[in-house]
Amino acid sequence: MEFCIEMFNLAPVKGYEDDVGTKTNFTTVNQSILSKGEDPLVGKESIAAFDALQRQFQGSLLWVPAFSQRGYYEFVQRIVNVSLASGIMKPVVQNPGHFIGMMRLWRALHRRSDWPSTGLYIVSAAFELCEEIDVFGFWFYETSLEGVPAPYHYHNDIIFGTRHSRFKEFQDLVNFHEMGILKMHFGSCKS
């Protein structure tokens, strides 16, 4: 199966089609992003908002990191149940052993105790699933190659944080690119 991992964390497509395309059959959801606000995925409004996010990925797989952080298990179960009830996407729950192994690997390689980003984790998982990997949109600098401001996420105002080793992760991906393990695409997606 060819995966087109279009978006991470149910990022919006509408209004960004020229930059991010429209073909998606696999996306992720980070429970820490969805858990913000009062009673997430409990009331009708919250569930309707989640369903609206899912609709842009109609029929896609929804990867859910069920065991990545303590205290989120019940909320992750709610994500899975709401997604199953809607029938819009098919939730896939990560294997906790795989995640722990990847986390330990990247922590050892980076000699830090921080978490690998969702992006690095998914690219790492793609090594096991895909014959060819093309990576778009991984840019960990505040300006593009053209010198234009480049936000951390194209769709919100999250600023560069210190939770992940973003420069080391970027360098790892560049090294994989140089070794021919994957192909990174830099610059505008239109070029």
Results as ranks from 00 to 15, higher is better:
2 E>Q: 06
3 F>M: 02
3 F>V: 01
3 F>N: 00
3 F>W: 12
6 E>R: 00
6 E>H: 04
8 F>Y: 03
8 F>H: 15
10 L>H: 10
10 L>K: 09
11 A>I: 10
11 A>L: 10
12 P>M: 08
13 V>H: 06
16 Y>L: 07
17 E>M: 14
17 E>T: 15
21 G>R: 00
21 G>M: 02
21 G>V: 03
28 T>W: 07
30 N>T: 04
31 Q>W: 14
31 Q>E: 15
32 S>R: 15
32 S>A: 12
33 I>Y: 07
33 I>T: 04
33 I>L: 05
33 I>S: 06
35 S>D: 06
36 K>R: 11
37 G>Q: 08
37 G>C: 09
42 V>S: 13
44 K>G: 02
46 S>M: 07
49 A>V: 01
49 A>Q: 04
52 A>W: 00
53 L>I: 07
55 R>P: 02
58 Q>P: 05
59 G>L: 00
66 A>N: 06
68 S>R: 14
68 S>D: 07
69 Q>W: 14
70 R>N: 10
70 R>M: 08
70 R>W: 09
70 R>D: 12
71 G>N: 06
72 Y>H: 13
73 Y>M: 08
74 E>I: 09
75 F>S: 09
75 F>P: 04
75 F>V: 11
76 V>W: 09
77 Q>P: 00
77 Q>Y: 01
77 Q>T: 05
79 I>W: 04
84 L>F: 06
84 L>M: 10
85 A>W: 00
87 G>I: 04
87 G>H: 05
88 I>L: 12
89 M>K: 03
89 M>G: 03
89 M>W: 02
92 V>H: 05
92 V>L: 13
92 V>I: 12
93 V>C: 14
93 V>D: 02
94 Q>S: 15
94 Q>I: 10
95 N>F: 12
97 G>Q: 14
97 G>Y: 15
98 H>Y: 14
100 I>Y: 13
102 M>S: 15
103 M>A: 13
104 R>E: 15
105 L>S: 11
106 W>G: 04
107 R>M: 12
107 R>S: 11
109 L>Q: 10
111 R>K: 14
113 S>E: 03
115 W>G: 06
120 L>D: 13
121 Y>D: 05
122 I>Q: 04
122 I>P: 02
125 A>H: 12
126 A>R: 06
128 E>L: 02
128 E>R: 00
131 E>W: 02
131 E>T: 09
135 V>A: 02
137 G>N: 05
139 W>K: 00
139 W>F: 04
141 Y>L: 12
143 T>S: 02
144 S>G: 14
148 V>A: 04
151 P>R: 00
151 P>A: 05
153 H>A: 00
156 N>R: 11
156 N>I: 03
158 I>M: 08
158 I>N: 05
158 I>H: 10
159 I>H: 03
160 F>N: 07
162 T>V: 06
162 T>H: 13
166 R>L: 13
167 F>M: 11
167 F>K: 10
169 E>K: 07
170 F>K: 03
173 L>D: 14
173 L>N: 12
174 V>Q: 05
175 N>V: 08
176 F>D: 10
180 G>H: 01
182 L>C: 10
184 M>D: 03
186 F>Q: 08
187 G>A: 02
189 C>M: 04
190 K>C: 14
190 K>Y: 06
191 S>C: 11
